[in-house]
Nucleic acid binder design. Sequence first.
DNA 1: ACCTGAACACCGTTCAAGT
DNA 2: ACCTGAACACCGTTCAAGT
Lengths: 214, 214
Amino acid sequence: MPKRTGMSEAVIAARALVLVDEIGLDGLSMRRLATALDVSAMTLYSYFADREALLDAVTQLLYAEIVPPAPGAGPREELRGLMHAVRRVLHAHPRALPLVSHYPPRTVEALAFVNAGFRAVLDAGVSPLHAARCYRALAAYSIGTATVEISGYFGQGPGPHEPPGPGVDPVALQEALPEVALVAPLLAGLDDVEEFDYGLDLTLDGFLRRHAPD
Amino acid sequence: MPKRTGMSEAVIAARALVLVDEIGLDGLSMRRLATALDVSAMTLYSYFADREALLDAVTQLLYAEIVPPAPGAGPREELRGLMHAVRRVLHAHPRALPLVSHYPPRTVEALAFVNAGFRAVLDAGVSPLHAARCYRALAAYSIGTATVEISGYFGQGPGPHEPPGPGVDPVALQEALPEVALVAPLLAGLDDVEEFDYGLDLTLDGFLRRHAPD
DNA sequence: ACCTGAACACCGTTCAAGT
DNA sequence: ACCTGAACACCGTTCAAGT
């Protein structure tokens, strides 16, 4: 643990997250991060074993930004609020999404929002086992919806993609895949938040109906 | 379009997919792929504009591997079969998952499984708009569940991660996040396929109850 | 004790040159 | 017409050397 340069794991990771937001994950090199921090590239290696360890720390920092809603509104509303808080943070750092897909929350600060969700369902009488199942399903839901939203999977996002069914001749598409030709144009018109809430309500209704007493 | 070397977009992309399976996405360099194909690295650039274009083609090839189930079993069973077919292919190429998260199906061959899903729900009387919503939700579900399964988000997969809530002192965890300490150990015991079906049934039941006549 | 420059073994991609 | 070697501007990381 070095001293003189005002460096620390937290300072480095915070600067790295800003850089990821600005120039993307591929743009974040150890050399570039070091330059932004006014140290040599090698200095970073006295704080993190390698680039992987740095990226994990960045991800933990991102999770720590999630602010769980105040408790007391009941499990359904608390989980809804929590899921929207997660969605907000993921959309605040769209270029960091692959990190979230790779590194689960691990530190006490990063797990705070998970703990809030567990408390909400446990307080409502859900068993620990079904609290675990609920977390798993909602984690998959957060990552899956954020992925299709952020990558512009359906043609409306800021992603690097063409609209769906693109690049192929429309006439050939109509011929070969008539149902895709009919339905695909409607995908771009769907509203992100509306679809997020729709699928979320489906999942929450099902879970709570089955596993929460009232 | 060159000739002499027996090269083609399809041959190159197929070899690239094999290499991704073997050595991962980061290991797949233009130089390494070229060596595996016995051509110079520069030859690849007469078939693909850049690495991005190559990776997109690899992804389309992967989507084309999805074999939709035979039609006629009703929308619920067809969608279930289709989702399992998707899951099988994603798990056959775990290191290619980030590609699936970035490049949507685009070619006629890659969109074949999407068309099969659309036909199943349209035949059941679902409107084109709700077929689009259904696809969006199921695409997010596939990607989200595959991500948490393959990355070992909950500590049982072959991923590069620790179990959840790891790296922190158990006593400190119990102190700071008692609900996490209680529930997290149960996450590793959940069965991938069981949870996949549980959440899938939830979604399918909800959608079909609302939007399919019978 | 803490930090760093040079070096090693790589990258993607451009471009002028080969056959 | 098709393919390629050399070169440019980068990487992550090791290691011996500086202060």
